[in-house]
Write a protein that binds this DNA or RNA. Structure first.
Length: 329
DNA sequence: AAGGCGGGGAA
DNA sequence: TTCCCAGCCTT
């Protein structure tokens, strides 16, 4: 099984940018970006990030604002905050070379510690990510694998002579052949070893996870100024879109009406009244935002909108642009 | 153990 | 639409 998979991997592996380097820093950055972000999406962010911050020293010396700006649009912004904090933590000293050493860094959990230590240093620890979970679940026909079973089994199967290639090979198989919905079993290099394949119904493994419902959130936002020069606020570092900037926003709390939330927003900024511009919507994994957007003239400090903003904030500003475009259109 | 935390690709 | 992605942290 190991020989079949590794032969296939060395033949068919995708040419990905982080596979062209041995630099532990760049491999680390790639693994953090690839946490819950697909390869096709993450590639552009990786190129942008390592060009802006080519070394761990450069990252450690940067401001959080600059780091978040390089991360803008990539989501899960705690990853950027933790990566920045960890860079400050270790810059000037040698990189850890063990699983345990990497695990001690902020934002580095079991997956990332195994990935970086094995890929950059050949440390013998198996990665367990979504791909590996699916591959092992099918390989051994275990429908609801526990985290403990997954790590133990992955470590048992690890190819100790080349942990880097082995870990990447299992993930590559999961990403390109052993996919969730329509696995390409006929061309799978290791189908002869797969119990789910032998069962005749490979997609029954693993059983689908129960997911939390998407909750609807009503909110009001206020634009003062225009899209190039406007009043923006920085959100607290903990919580939703932490550390990012955007036009002032208030969520409609339980038992509150939209008008209540708008009054709270205007009172907070000492703005007497505002004009309704329109409504925009934005869905995240766990929240569906419905944002009523208002505009006002007010004596508030305006600045160029170069700060890092989320997609939600960009949509709010786009509403203003569309209104003004219609005016001249 | 469960919930919070973005955004987007693929079918 | 639905599923899930080279997960981690807090509670």
């Amino acid at each position: 099984m190991q020989e079949q998979l590794l032969d296939w991997y060395h033949r068919e592996a995708r040419d990905l940018p982080w596979r062209r380097t041995r630099d532990p820093y760049k491999i680390w950055v790639s693994e953090v970006i690839l946490q819950q972000t697909q390869v096709v999406t993450g590639t552009a962010y990786y190129e942008r990030f390592v060009e802006r911050f080519p070394t761990v020293q450069a990252l450690a010396e940067a401001t959080l604002e600059d780091v978040l700006q390089a991360w803008e649009g990539c989501g899960y912004y705690a990853r950027a905050r933790n990566l920045h904090a960890a860079a400050k933590q270790i810059t000037g000293q040698p990189f850890p070379e063990t699983y345990e050493g990497w695990l001690a860094l902020k934002g580095v959990g079991p997956y990332t510690a195994a990935a970086v230590s094995s890929i950059a240093f050949g440390y013998p620890k198996a990665v367990v990510d979504g791909n590996v979970r699916r591959v092992l679940s099918r390989w051994f026909a275990v429908k609801e694998p526990s985290d403990h079973w997954l790590q133990t089994t992955a470590d048992e199967q690890l190819f100790h002579a080349d942990p880097s290639s082995w870990n990447q090979a299992v993930m590559e198989l999961g990403a390109t052949i052993c996919t969730p919905k329509a696995p390409k079993c006929p061309v799978c290099p290791v189908k002869d070893f797969c119990k789910a394949y032998q069962s005749g119904n490979p997609t029954a493994y693993p059983a689908p996870k129960v997911r939390a419902e998407v909750k609807e959130v009503q909110a009001v936002a206020l634009i003062v100024g225009d899209q190039h020069n406007l009043y923006i606020e920085k959100r607290p570092e903990k919580g939703l879109l932490g550390g990012l900037s955007g036009p002032p926003l208030e969520q409609v709390q339980a038992g509150e009406t939209v008008e209540d939330a708008l009054k709270r927003l205007l009172d907070r900024l000492s703005v007497p009244d505002a004009k309704h511009l329109g409504t925009t919507e934005h869905t995240m994994t766990h929240r569906h935002f419905v944002v009523r957007v208002y505009q006002a003239e007010a004596d508030l400090p305006l600045s160029a909108s170069t700060a890092a903003m989320s997609k939600l904030d960009r949509k709010i500003l786009r509403l203003l642009q569309e209104k003004q475009g219609a005016l001249f259109g």
